[in-house]
């Protein structure tokens, strides 16, 4: 894993002006005209990130943990009903309201543009959960439990969170780290498409696109200029890293 300290990471970015490479800026584009609401992304995220199984009773209490959820709404009256689907996940806001309110720095912004949650620092105050306008943050109300043999399928690259800790989408930071390490060893930048989070990888209609916005050749850098673009709750000024595309006319 990366052994650099916070200071070095921050100072590393400051050296860009002298000509060293720009930092990464990971962003996601979600094309709502392509989303079918199949929820493959939800399942893939659960599998990749060791999200705890909640069960029927807990889900009825509103405690089911989903790092990405599909918000389904109905438009129109029968028989002209249409379903619209919106995948909502942590928006990795540039001006994240969840970060300054954590009293122990368990939530902070990495130089790569990710909103990071430091599990072993979290003491469970839950202010960040309140302050996220997208309700993207989840809390571990109990210890996780996997009945045998489900524990065999846990991802060894991702920690298992115990009770009392906030968690949320990390853009599959373990995959990003792996991609960056490989690229660093080969002395190059991460190429477009080399790093895909689980949800992006599993989407059958390619509605999710992930990449480095600071790489001018990446798909994401081109798609964020699409005229169908909008941000969720844009007027709050959170500057999300997720761009939605939808034809409105």
């Amino acid at each position: 894993m990366d052994n650099r300290t916070h200071k070095e990471e921050i100072q590393g970015t400051a050296q860009n002006k002298t000509g060293s490479p720009k930092p990464y800026k990971w962003e996601l584009v979600i094309d709502l005209d392509r989303c079918t609401g199949c929820e493959a992304c939800v399942v893939a995220c659960h599998a990749e990130n060791n999200v705890r199984i909640s069960g029927e009773e807990e889900a009825a209490q509103g405690r089911a943990i989903n790092w990405i959820r599909i918000e389904r709404s109905w438009e129109g009256e029968y028989p002209d009903i249409k379903a619209t689907f919106m995948p909502v996940l942590c928006q990795h806001c540039n001006n994240a309201p969840c970060e300054p309110v954590c009293p122990v720095y368990a939530s902070y912004h990495t130089p790569d543009g990710l909103n990071a949650q430091v599990y072993n620092r979290c003491i469970g105050v839950r202010y960040c959960g309140n302050n996220c306008p997208y309700v993207a943050r989840q809390f571990n109300w109990f210890d996780p439990q996997w009945d045998a043999p489900l524990a065999e399928q846990l991802n060894p690259d991702v920690t298992v969170r115990m009770n009392g800790i906030m968690e949320k989408c990390t853009f599959c930071v373990q995959r990003i780290r792996k991609g960056k390490e490989t690229a660093h060893q080969e002395g190059r930048r991460v190429r477009d498409g080399e790093v895909t989070p689980a949800c992006v990888q599993s989407c059958p209609s390619s509605a999710l696109v992930f990449g480095d916005r600071n790489d001018p050749t990446s798909r994401v850098a081109k798609m964020v200029k699409n005229d169908r673009r909008f941000h969720l709750l844009e007027d709050l000024g959170t500057e999300p890293a997720i761009t939605y595309l939808k034809r409105l006319t």
């Binding site: 807990e58 209490q61 509103g62 405690r63 469970g124 839950r126 202010y127 959960g129 309140n130 309700v135 943050r137 989840q138 809390f139 571990n140 109300w141 109990f142 210890d143 009770n163 009392g164």
Partner: peptide, 15 residues
């Protein structure tokens, strides 16, 4: 011992 889940708190009511 068992977790804050003993309360009736759940997303979005964290407090």
């Amino acid at each position: 011992e068992t977790g804050i889940g003993q309360t009736n708190l759940h997303k979005p009511i964290f407090w």
